[in-house]
Computed example of a mutant assay.
Amino acid sequence: MENNIKDKYNVDESYKTLSLQPYNYYKKGLKWYVLALVVIGLVCLYYRNGMPEYVLIIASTLTILIVLWMLKELLFRIPIYYTFDAGQNKVFKSNFFVKNKALFDLDKMVLFTSSDNEGWAYAIGEKRKHLIKSYKISEYFGDSKKSIAKADLYENEILSKINELVGQVNP
């Protein structure tokens, strides 16, 4: 199970750095977008001659929305990486467009739980500013036994490594 969570978050670990991709697990959900596009395409193909205009408009609108949502996931959410670098005492954010943008100093980082309608997740932020600007670094967890077990595994395999890096900055 240890490798499973590291694969899920695409964790890359070295002596003084740790990188993780908190939305990497969204890749599994992309199959549903593709399936929806295939179903819409098959329905349109089957009824191509006898399809009313309003059905064509609805199918086209759904197709455009699904493609836009999928592109948003592929370009703006899934490629996000956070790198915790004890050597430079920085937390970096990288995505499809920007590489290694420094967010704040590692020794000024605070780890906390953030909650909303989807559940709670681990997040990071700069001390004294984390309630204004924070960055989610885990999936959402709930109160079920399975979800609590996932949260414990995340704490043991990923958060503990981040805390070790913070400790390397402040001996």
Rank of each mutant, 00 (worst) to 15 (best):
D107W: 02
P171Q: 11
S14P: 01
A149G: 11
N170Q: 11
Y154F: 15
I124M: 13
K127P: 13
D105Q: 06
N4P: 02
K145T: 13
V166W: 04
A86T: 07
N10G: 01
S147R: 13
R48H: 09
I137K: 14
Y54P: 02
T113Y: 10
I158G: 10
N49C: 00
N95S: 10
G167L: 14
Y47Q: 06
L165H: 06
Y26C: 04
N24P: 00
S147N: 11
K136C: 11
I58S: 09
L37I: 07
Y122K: 15
E126V: 09
Q88Y: 08
Y54V: 05
L131D: 03
E139R: 14
A102L: 07
Y33C: 02
M1H: 12
K129L: 14
E139H: 08
K16N: 10
E13P: 03
N49F: 04
D116Y: 12
S14K: 15
I66F: 05
L153E: 00
H130T: 10
F97L: 13
D152R: 08
F141A: 09
K101Y: 09
F104H: 07
F104V: 03
N117A: 05
P171G: 10
K101N: 10
D152A: 06
F141S: 08
K27Q: 03
S147C: 12
K6P: 01
K28Y: 08
K8D: 03
Y9R: 06
M51V: 05
Q88D: 06
L106E: 00
G167M: 14
L30F: 03
Y81I: 11
D152P: 04
I66S: 00
G41T: 01
E73K: 12
N100P: 04
K136Y: 09
Y47W: 03
M70I: 04
D116H: 11
L106I: 04
N10E: 01
K16M: 08
W69N: 09
G50P: 00
I57Q: 10
Q168L: 14
K108N: 10
S114T: 15
G142D: 06
R128N: 12
L62I: 05
S19V: 13
K108R: 12
L45G: 00
A59Q: 07
K28G: 02
I137N: 14
K101D: 01
G125T: 10
G50K: 11
S138T: 08
S19D: 00
A149V: 06
Y154S: 08
L103M: 04
A123G: 14
N95M: 11
K16C: 06
Q168H: 13
A59P: 01
S160H: 13
L45E: 00
S114D: 02
I78V: 06
N100I: 03
M109P: 12
N10Y: 04
F96H: 10
A151P: 08
F104P: 03
L30M: 04
G125C: 12
V169Q: 15
E73H: 11
L111C: 08
G29V: 07
K72E: 08
S147Q: 13
D107T: 02
A151L: 06
I137D: 08
D152T: 05
Y82A: 09
